[in-house]
Design a protein around this nucleic acid. Structure first.
Length: 887
DNA sequence: TCTGAGTCAATACA
DNA sequence: TGTATTGACTCAGA
């Protein structure tokens, strides 16, 4: 499905960019070695100027490893002005191409990122070019004219807010090229260009060429390694510098634009043919850093990388000249200094230099997120000057500088510096995601704006993603930069005075478009994403890598049908998960065979199940409902045990379907007489093996037999694996209606099941998945402090306890816990209506039998679980270490 | 290679 | 039609 916000219309712009590049490349003559040298050096200056225009007036930071700029060649080389002009012209084209992308809202609705910078860069070019002209008395007349007109046009369009489609490049075929052809990849390449350029801006790394890669003409249609390495070389000794002059690089860009398949641009492009090669550490540097605390360095580096979400890959390649794996190894297990060889000490010296360079981290961030370094630097400087901005210099101690209110931060940022969303995400220390989503929900509801249009236009996300974000927002500190971006966008949207109007406008446009389509009989399904090339709402998008992947605009392939698990399959998977949330390959294959599913599907299910269980631990909860893999029991998954337990479970289900839920089981109860119980406990699936716990279990079994607890015997809707916790903490949503709807749902389910006494194992028995109420802010203390589940009651529900066993909960249920419905318990619970939120291994008790309830909740392990937080942690740790069930 | 994080998009339901 | 769910996918880290 074509993504809203990624319309085709931008191709026109890309077309022009592409054509400029093509024209430029066509002008290229094979450079002499001298030219090569010159070209190798000039872009660096240009990049510095274009990326650090404001910095250009200040002396470079000579202490920085990133400040080693190769300016000498440009300054000293003897070269004709004509060539210089040509080079300037080419670089101008390049900047223009970038400027078009960065300055004007592009097809993806990206707002201006560095319009000022681009303008300054262009002005700089103009100045330089004028100087050249004055010096030489010759020059290229049209160029300056074009430049001037472009600047004027750019300025005017910026003022008018003109869309990219209106951008008219001065028609001078000789210099500027004509508009023809299309290349949607131009933007990608420009992104790469920018990325690589930025990388080079603090280049400690120079790219190493592929052995055979020295294309010298524009004719090559094969992708060249150089096409991926637009960045200029760093040092005069660089082999690559000879091979990749700007002209050649431009030609390669053109070639790659012509030949590349539309691959989304990403900084970690898999086609990277480069290997980082750094200039060696000098003896002076070795002397300077003759004794380093590697652990401390590693710690600080990790903090920096973590704080700014800098990938190890980028760090390794840009700073250390090492692969991601090597970086990981170094950071995880730093050797003490004295144990390192000179070579082994090099990366630590580089890390040290990196840490000592105030700008290095920001440049890396800029590189990672394609933020113009000077922009980021300005942000940084502004933040230092204006305390209302994010205090980014004490990131490791978020409590020291009091972060400003999120709204103020956003307001300041959007008003003053127009940073990218990534910048904001990286630099904002705290944001109340709950408040934001609440406001968003209110706004959408009040103005009848759907999640779909909001997500596509404002967030660049699909409806489903918006739904999850709004209903289950993660706390800020738990979000990666990427995950923070939607919230930044939401806040920006909230700050926009015309936010609703824009969306309403867009909505109407869509409606009109649909009407037109229908009236014209074009038919086809409504692809509401394709109406939006000029959508004002996309203003909220930045030109950061973007929230939404650009999906193909072409006709979607055959709709892929989703796998739908039958209840039996789900039950089996839940059981298997309870036995081992991290199944090994053998287990996965066994399950795949057993359930007639693909191993991939099994893997995905476990993966998703872990993730979604984890998501149920909301807002800042340190609780880990799923034991880490290392904490898993050494005992392998036991297929026999699995089959026995599953068989019993399926019998339970069948019995329930037959409406015999209240009757005594004709077979040994689930646990009480289960010969595998001991094994289950012994495997650490139950926390504790003492008699009391067994007694508690037996109580639970007794309840089942008495029909007081239908948790094991009701097949309910199958969507409650993950959302029930949210529901439980829903302070606003719990009401009678919820219960009613749930009851209805259960009723229907039972009826449905009753009709089919023995559904086939593969039968799809989907039941109601509708939640009775949208989950609201979930209490973070779900597993650690159940007493805080509900802010409204503030009840210390010592009785409300749960035991999550590998994500499967065993809990009691107090009477005040029944309010919402059994459907939304944040742990699997049962109620007297037979609504089992999750038919996974669950031992619960009915609401109506206080005695039984009490007997159950007095399980020692559960009491431990409900203690003070500290106790909780302690107990939890013990549980983890003993591979026992968690709570 | 596995895992977590984030996301898409098919699907179901109100 | 809008929203919630969830299987599957991509990407980065270990």
């Amino acid at each position: 499905m074509p993504q809203f916000g990624r319309p085709d219309s931008g191709d026109l712009n890309d077309d022009r960019i592409h054509h400029i590049l093509t024209e430029a490349s066509s002008m290229i003559q094979k450079p002499s070695p001298q030219q090569n040298n010159l070209h190798n050096s000039i872009p660096m200056k240009h990049l510095e100027d274009s990326h650090s225009i404001e910095d250009s007036k200040s002396p470079p930071n000579c202490t920085s490893p990133f400040s080693k700029r190769n300016m000498k060649k440009y300054e000293n080389d003897d070269i004709s002005e004509e060539k210089l002009q040509k080079i300037y012209q080419e670089e101008f084209h390049k900047i223009m191409a970038r400027g078009q992308r960065d300055t004007f809202p592009n097809a993806a609705g990206m707002p201006p990122l560095a319009d000022e910078n681009i303008r300054l860069a262009l002005e700089m070019y103009q100045r330089e070019f004028s100087k050249l002209q004055q010096q030489s008395g010759a020059g290229i007349p049209n160029f300056t004219n074009n430049l001037t007109s472009l600047l004027a046009l750019q300025h005017q369009q910026a003022l008018n807010g003109a869309s990219i489609q209106d951008l008219s490049i001065p028609k001078d075929p000789k210099q500027m090229g004509k508009s023809n052809g299309l290349s949607s990849e131009s933007d990608n390449e420009n992104n790469k260009d920018l990325e690589e350029s930025m990388r080079s801006a603090f280049s400690m790394v120079k790219p190493k060429p592929e052995p055979t890669s020295t294309p010298t003409t524009t004719a090559s249609s094969a992708p060249s390694p150089i096409s991926n390495t637009i960045l200029p070389p760093v040092t005069p000794t660089d082999d690559f510098s000879v091979a990749a002059s700007p002209l050649q690089r431009m030609a390669s860009i053109t070639n790659s634009l012509m030949s590349q398949s539309p691959v989304p641009s990403h900084h970690s492009s898999p086609q990277r043919p480069l290997k980082a090669v750094l200039p060696p550490i000098t003896q002076q540097q070795f002397d300077l850093y003759n004794n380093l605390n590697t652990e401390d360095i590693v710690r600080r580096v990790k903090e920096a990388l973590s704080q700014y979400s800098i990938s190890q890959r980028l760090f390794g390649e840009s700073v250390l000249g090492l692969s991601q794996g090597s970086v990981s190894d170094l950071l995880a297990r730093p050797k003490p200094w004295h144990m390192l060889t000179q070579k082994g000490r090099e990366p630590f010296i580089r890390m040290k230099m990196f840490l000592e360079d105030d700008n290095a981290v920001h440049k890396l961030v800029a590189s990672q997120y394609k933020i113009a370094p000077d922009k980021l630097m300005r942000t940084d400087q502004k933040s230092q000057n204006d305390k209302k901005m994010m205090p980014i210099h004490s990131p490791q101690h978020p409590d020291t500088p009091q972060p400003p209110s999120s709204a103020n931060v956003m307001r300041n940022m959007s008003q003053h510096i127009s940073p990218t969303v990534y910048e904001m995400a990286a630099l904002t220390q705290d944001l109340d995601t709950q408040v934001i989503t609440t406001k968003i929900k209110e706004a959408l509801l009040a103005n009848n704006i759907g999640q779909k249009i909001f997500g596509e236009a404002v967030l660049g996300l699909s409806q489903g993603s918006v739904s999850e974000l709004l209903s289950k927002p993660k706390p800020w500190h738990m979000l990666s930069i990427k995950g923070r971006e939607p919230f930044i966008r939401m806040q920006l949207w909230l700050n926009d005075a015309n936010n609703v109007e824009r969306l309403q406008l867009l909505k109407n446009e869509r409606r009109e478009a649909i009407k037109r389509r229908r009236s014209t009989g074009t038919g086809g399904h409504d692809n509401s994403s394709d109406t939006s090339s000029n959508d004002t709402s996309e203003f909220y998008h930045s030109n950061s890598p973007g929230p939404a992947s650009v999906t193909s605009q072409s006709a979607p392939p055959n709709k892929k049908q989703r796998v739908l698990f039958s209840e039996e399959q789900k039950e089996a998977l839940r059981l298997a998960f309870a036995l081992d949330p991290y199944p090994n390959v053998q287990t996965i294959e066994f399950l795949a065979n057993e359930l007639n599913l693909s191993t991939r599907t099994i893997t995905n299910w476990f993966h998703n199940h872990r993730m979604r269980l984890k998501q149920q631990v909301p807002h800042g909860q340190p609780s880990e409902p799923i034991p880490s893999r290392e904490n898993q029991s050494g005992a392998p998954f036991d297929p026999v045990q699995f089959r026995i337990l599953l068989n019993q479970r399926l019998m339970e289900i069948q019995k329930e379907r037959m409406g015999l839920g209240g009757m005594a089981l004709p077979y040994p109860p689930y646990f009480a007489a289960n010969p595998n119980l001991a094994a289950l406990i012994g495997r650490g699936l139950l926390s504790g093996t003492d008699a009391e716990q067994l007694a508690a279990l037996n109580n639970a079994v007794k309840e089942q037999i008495m029909g007081l607890d239908l948790s094991m015997t009701s097949l309910k809707r199958d969507d409650d694996d993950y959302d029930d916790m949210d529901q439980n903490s829903d302070n606003e949503g719990g009401n009678d209606d919820d219960n009613e709807s749930l009851s209805d749902s259960r009723h229907n389910n039972n009826n449905d099941h009753g009709k089919d006494m023995s559904p086939p194992p593969q039968a799809i028995s989907r039941t109601s998945r509708r939640k009775p109420a949208a989950p609201q802010w979930v209490n973070p203390l779900i597993t650690m402090n159940p007493g805080d589940w509900r802010d409204d009651t503030k009840k210390n529900i010592a009785d409300d306890k749960e035991v999550i066993i590998n994500g499967v909960c065993v809990m009691n249920q107090s009477s005040d816990f029944k309010s919402d419905d059994g459907d939304d318990a944040n742990v699997e619970q049962s109620n007297d209506e037979g609504d089992e939120p999750d038919s996974r291994l669950t031992i619960a008790e009915g609401n109506d039998e206080d005695d039984i309830k009490k007997s159950f909740i007095k399980k020692p392990s559960i009491e431990k679980a409900s203690g003070e937080n500290g106790d909780d942690v302690k107990v939890k740790k013990e549980v983890d270490e003993s591979n026992a069930w968690e709570y």
